[in-house]
Amino acid sequence: MNAGALITDESVALLEAIDLRKSFGPTPALDGAGLRMHAGEVVAVMGPSGSGKSTLLHCLAGILQPDSGQVLYRGAELSAMSDGVRSELRRTEFGFVFQFGQLVPELTSLENVALPLRLGGMRRKEAESRATEWLERLEVADVAAKRPGETSGGQGQRVAVARALVTGPKVVFADEPTGALDSLNGERVMQLLVAAAKDTNAAVVLVTHEPRVAAYSDREVVVRDGKSREVELAR
């Protein structure tokens, strides 16, 4: 997507959610949640299980449509976009790192990382050379030819980070990215993710219930009972 088409004015938030409400059946998952973030920011979304953290992230990423409320990406409302445009957004502007399951088991690590580029129509050679760079940067170049089932959890998660960042996204959505990892691997993945995001000036939405992971953020938003809350501490 041509970035020039969207509002780049610094005064406009990169991503903004206003009064989101979303129910699954009778139970509300989001009940007036909001968020506002700027380029290069790492925001932790914290809260107990079932509080609506993931739902908020999915709405922010345009994967779920909120029942009411707005999600604005650079001033454009996601819910008004067609599926095709939102898919394109996910491919070019957004990146995703989940706890597990986001890699395609049939494809090798290299192919997985190259996938978003190729879906966008890039030639294989170019896509794979870029993917290789990212694998190297995330210190997993040695598993390039292996499939997700053949790598360790930490390696797989780094491959996932590489894939999320390969398109040069403006926002990375990370949902419990270290949830299945031990402390050491988790720390490493977070360091690499945040460092890479800072380098590319990408914003990160980091859903986690782990304080030490949240400590990699610049600020945190707490979601409780579907409502979000941000604490402004006096310096």
Binding site: A44, M46, P211, R212, A214, A215, Y216, S217, D218, E220, V222, V231, L233
Partner: peptide
């Protein structure tokens, strides 16, 4: 209090 803790953790 959480915010204060997190600030230190950061």
């Amino acid at each position: 209090q959480r915010s204060a803790h997190l600030r230190l953790m950061r």
